[in-house]
Amino acid sequence: MGGGVYQRGKAQQAPQGVDLGGTLRAVLLSPLVAAVRGPIDVLGRFSRFGARVLLTVPTRRWSVREFVTQAGTLTARCFIPVCATIFPFGAVIGVQGMAIFDLFGAHRLLSSLLSLVIIRELAPVLAAVLVAAQGGASFAAELGAMRIKEELDATAVMGIDPIGWHVVPRVLAMAFVVPLLTTLANAFGVAGGYVVAVGLYDQDHGVFVHHMAQLIGIFDLGASAFKGAVFGLLVGLISTWRGYGATGGAEGVGRAVNDTVVYSVMFILVVNYQLSSLLFGGTGG
């Protein structure tokens, strides 16, 4: 529900006396309290849900067939968004990188920097963000609508655990599909840079390829996919958590989708920082 100018209460009686203390409290204090208490609350509820889902995995009381279906749809639906965004991203790095290396007359280094940034950082993050926006949001929307229409209750009444049936396959599908898409994104991102460097700026094909693997190795490809898997698991848990717990009719479904995207992007960026320090911190410094 939108707040805004149409405040409830005395909104009609024109803003004659402005309650300065109240305003200050509202502006300064309440976000502060919310900033401290909100995240702790949210994290607590999220980890409880996550634990419940992950503990259901080894019981094997979940449908493998559903997992395959979900993984298939997820790949089909997210493939184009991921590739369509990482490619121009690679191209942008090409354009800007050319501008930077122009300053040093070191064009040949472009592909080194490009593959480093794409594979270590951008591909996993971008793939996960796009999957969150496309797949995660649709998981939240589906589960939310099922919750609102009491379909999840119906599943439970039939003696089927809705977590095992609806949630676990989706979470696992995410954890499985995001690394795949990340690996694809690595290729598409570098290709985007290649098109700019070789196609637009006439860099030599051989130079580009030769320097590509200068800064990175097979470890980085693995680390990239590993990041993807972690992000996928996170997005899977967040989206099903918001959808599964949706309340309050159609608005509730909208809120679930909104929360999924916001939380996913936040978690991805924060966790990415940790993972980068963990995986590449030693080699970088």
Binding site: G2, G4, Q7, R8, A11, Q12, E251
Partner: peptide, 12 residues
């Protein structure tokens, strides 16, 4: 009715 407004604002 618009959820973001009070009853009075809705009517007004």
């Amino acid at each position: 009715l618009f959820d973001s407004m009070s009853v009075g604002d809705n009517i007004a």
